[in-house]
Design a protein around this nucleic acid. Structure first.
Length: 423
RNA sequence: GGAGAGAUGGCAGAGUGGUCGAUUGCGGCGGUCUUGAAAACCGUUGAGGUGUAACAGCCUCCGGGGGUUCGAAUCCCUCUCUCUCCGCCA
């Protein structure tokens, strides 16, 4: 959520910058400015009236004490009248506040000035490519066929137990997942991230705080009987640790990480995108989150991209980094880099991480603030990134490392898996 | 699931209708003392809105919502949550 002050004082800037997202903000911004003015006027009137009521009420108390009952009764007429006026004003004010918030939450975050316009992922800019794409023979199999061949991922049984998008991992791949999680968490801790184990189900306030609600309402699994949501990423519980918190300068940088299962309804997905492990309703992921001072957030974004790149290097997978264009940018993000590994048999780039700077957009929603050197309270900046999401990493590992004898496990994982090959 | 108790500032914990945004203690910050530190002593220490060039001023907030009253942290209703005991249970 953008800050009302910014909208009030810099409305043109907002309209211009949101164009990069193909978002026409003119109408909303105009309405916000209008309702904001009304809100402030109502607030002023109410405050003045309340001030009068308060001092009169105090006066009445004094008069009663000194036995001047009649004089008190006379003043009561005025306060009673004010009471009715104020009730009205109060209602108006509440309505203006609700209207203002309803409008404000419809504005997406302002893209960073270096974010380029564009309509879709096709307009994303490739920042770099690393690693070498292995030359596979024509008989190379996509991962879902390898999964069947080695009996390591059972889509049919997952289908029976739950439905599409809930695979059953077996044997060496089940262990490989555990190995990856441990490896990722160990690396995160080495890099200074504090490990958390978070609730997998969150309430409305948390889902709102990170921006899943109301924007991505239909994308989360909802438990109506308790009005709770299954997390689509541990970003939600991790970042909400700091909801309604005022940090001190010495607390920075806040770095935390969590492994969690993630649940996504993925309504509207279809076709080859959902084949095999490419897109699932349930998957595992290690997430990293940072809360930092505004002036440092872009430096930290770069640092996080570098960190995730290093992880993929260690897994010996070819990958590229793309910077999202305005049209592909998430609602809450100012800037996002995607990390994509190349899945050689599918001949596809698979997104395995998305690293974003939200600037103060989430912080404003969840009142995540810090006290600066002068004792002033400001919104902090939040960032997060996958480090990493497992299924597509596994898809790429299976495909890229297939040989006649089986699938080789990257050396760095062998201490965690206890085996070197899946065969 | 059944019964009971409670929700107040960073924490602990007073406050049952009239300068209570809130006594006090701890913690934090600043200072005195000290070579330095500790102790002791003194001072200071919530957030939001409105407003101002900046101060000031004014308003709101004692779990959420509603009500009674000229006036509510204090009374009433309601919701949520927490704790204790019992039951069940990984």
């Amino acid at each position: 959520m953008l800050q009302i002050n910014l909208v009030r004082e810099n409305s043109q800037l907002i309209v211009d910058r949101l164009k990069v997202r193909n978002f026409d903000a003119r109408g909303i911004v105009e309405k916000i400015i209008d309702v904001d003015a009304r809100r402030r006027e109502a607030q002023k009137n109410l405050d003045d009236n309340l001030a009068e009521s308060k001092s009169l009420a105090r006066r009445i108390g004094e008069l009663y004490k000194s036995g001047k009952k009649e004089e008190a009764e006379k003043i009561k007429e005025r306060t009673t009248r004010l009471k009715h006026i104020n009730k009205d004003l109060q209602q108006k004010l509440e309505q203006y506040k609700v209207d203002q918030e309803d409008l404000l939450i419809r504005l997406p975050n302002i893209p960073h000035e270096t974010v380029t316009p564009g309509d879709s992922e096709d307009d994303n800019q490739v920042v770099s490519e690393s690693g070498t794409i292995p030359g596979l023979t024509d008989t190379a199999l996509p991962h879902w066929e390898l999964a069947a061949k080695f009996d390591i991922v059972d889509f049919e049984t997952g289908n029976k137990i739950t439905g599409a998008g809930f695979p059953l991992y077996k044997g060496k791949v089940a262990k490989l997942q555990r190995a990856l999680v441990s490896f990722f968490l160990d690396k995160a801790m080495e890099a200074g991230y504090a490990e958390y184990q978070v609730p997998l189900i969150v309430n409305r306030d948390s889902a709102f705080g990170t921006g899943q609600l109301p924007d991505k309402d239909g994308q989360m699994y909802h438990i109506p009987s308790d009005n709770l949501f299954l997390i689509p990423t541990s970003e939600v519980p991790l970042t909400n640790i700091f909801r309604d918190v005022i940090l001190e300068e010495r607390d920075f940088p806040v770095k935390c990480t969590a492994y969690s299962t993630c649940f996504r309804r993925e309504a509207g997905s279809y076709g080859k995108d959902v084949k095999g492990l490419n897109r699932l309703h349930q998957f595992d992921k290690v997430e990293i989150v940072q809360v930092v001072k505004p002036e440092e957030s872009y430096k930290v974004l770069d640092e996080m991209v570098k960190y995730v790149g290093k992880l993929i290097d260690l897994l010996e997978l070819p990958y590229r980094i793309t910077k999202l264009c305005g049209g592909d940018l998430g609602f809450a993000a100012s800037m996002t880099y995607d990390m994509e590994v190349f899945s050689t048999a599918q001949k596809k780039w698979l997104e395995v991480s998305s690293i974003s700077n939200f600037e103060s957009f989430q912080a404003n929603r969840m009142k995540l603030r810090y006290r600066d050197g002068q004792g002033k309270i400001n919104l902090a900046h939040t960032l997060n990134g996958s480090a990493l999401a497992l299924p597509r990493i596994i898809a790429a590992l299976l495909e890229n490392n297939q040989t006649e004898n089986g699938i080789n496990i990257p050396g760095v994982l062998v201490p965690y898996t206890g085996f070197e090959i899946i065969n």
